[in-house]
Simulated assay, not measured.
Amino acid sequence: MYASSRGSSDAGFESAIAFPASYLRAGTEIAQSLDHRSESVCIARRIARAVLTGWHVGDERIEVIALLVSELVTNAVEHATPPIILRLHREHGGKQLWIGVSDGGIALTKGSWVVSCTSDEHGRGLQIVDTLAVARGTLSGPDGSTHWARVLLQEGTSSSSHAERFLRAGA
């Protein structure tokens, strides 16, 4: 099921995105189109936080997932072509979350952020994803790619504890 958006501005996000409370309680999946611009990273984090709060995910797990979403959406904005679609899907009775960011395929030029910084200021996004997620991969097709990560939603498991230590250490 696709969530609807009445605007793409980050300002007033809470009123610009429509996720019915009943859907968030009962739903297992959302998909949201994002503009192909750097501001979409912040918007994607806010979407993830709003959905996960509605799904009663704990605050520490929400922050881990928000970081994963940020890294995957940033890669789409900087290295791929439109469209960008964020998907969040609860799996295994709500014990795991699959995060997918679809794009239109590899861009011929680098994004403005990558071009503006030195090589030691970028390039660690997928290492962060590998550290925080229990699995990561890419699905490719004729219309683009979906880069995905899977994370446990239950706090206190070995991978979620590792992710929380990683975040507290300042990555």
Rank of each mutant, 00 (worst) to 15 (best):
E78Y: 00
T138S: 06
R87A: 09
L34Q: 05
E29K: 11
A3L: 15
S161W: 08
G93P: 12
V64G: 05
V77P: 08
S9Y: 11
A133T: 06
N75T: 12
Y23C: 14
D35Q: 14
W113Q: 01
C42A: 14
H147F: 11
A44Y: 03
G54P: 10
D120P: 00
N75A: 12
G27L: 00
A44W: 03
G58C: 12
L139A: 13
I47C: 12
L152S: 04
V77Y: 01
P142M: 04
A133M: 03
S8Q: 13
G105W: 07
Q32E: 14
G100F: 00
A171R: 00
G111V: 13
T81Y: 03
W113M: 02
A44C: 10
P83D: 04
G27I: 02
I85F: 04
A163Y: 05
S140L: 10
L52A: 04
Q154W: 07
F166W: 04
P82S: 06
R150D: 08
E29M: 09
E63D: 13
R165E: 10
S161G: 10
E29Y: 06
S5D: 12
D35S: 14
A21I: 11
S112V: 11
S102W: 02
S116R: 08
R46P: 11
T146L: 00
V77K: 00
Q154T: 14
L126D: 08
A18N: 13
V77N: 01
W98E: 00
S70C: 11
V41D: 03
P83V: 01
V151W: 05
A149M: 05
L67T: 09
A133N: 05
I17S: 11
S145D: 12
D35I: 06
T131Q: 11
S102L: 02
D120Q: 04
T28L: 13
G105L: 08
G7S: 15
L68S: 03
S22V: 09
I65N: 04
E29I: 08
S38M: 10
W148K: 02
D130P: 07
E63F: 00
D59I: 07
L34Y: 05
G105T: 07
A11H: 11
Y2V: 02
S158H: 11
G94N: 12
L68Q: 01
A50Q: 14
E39G: 15
Q127L: 05
T53Y: 06
I65S: 05
F13W: 09
A11W: 09
A16N: 15
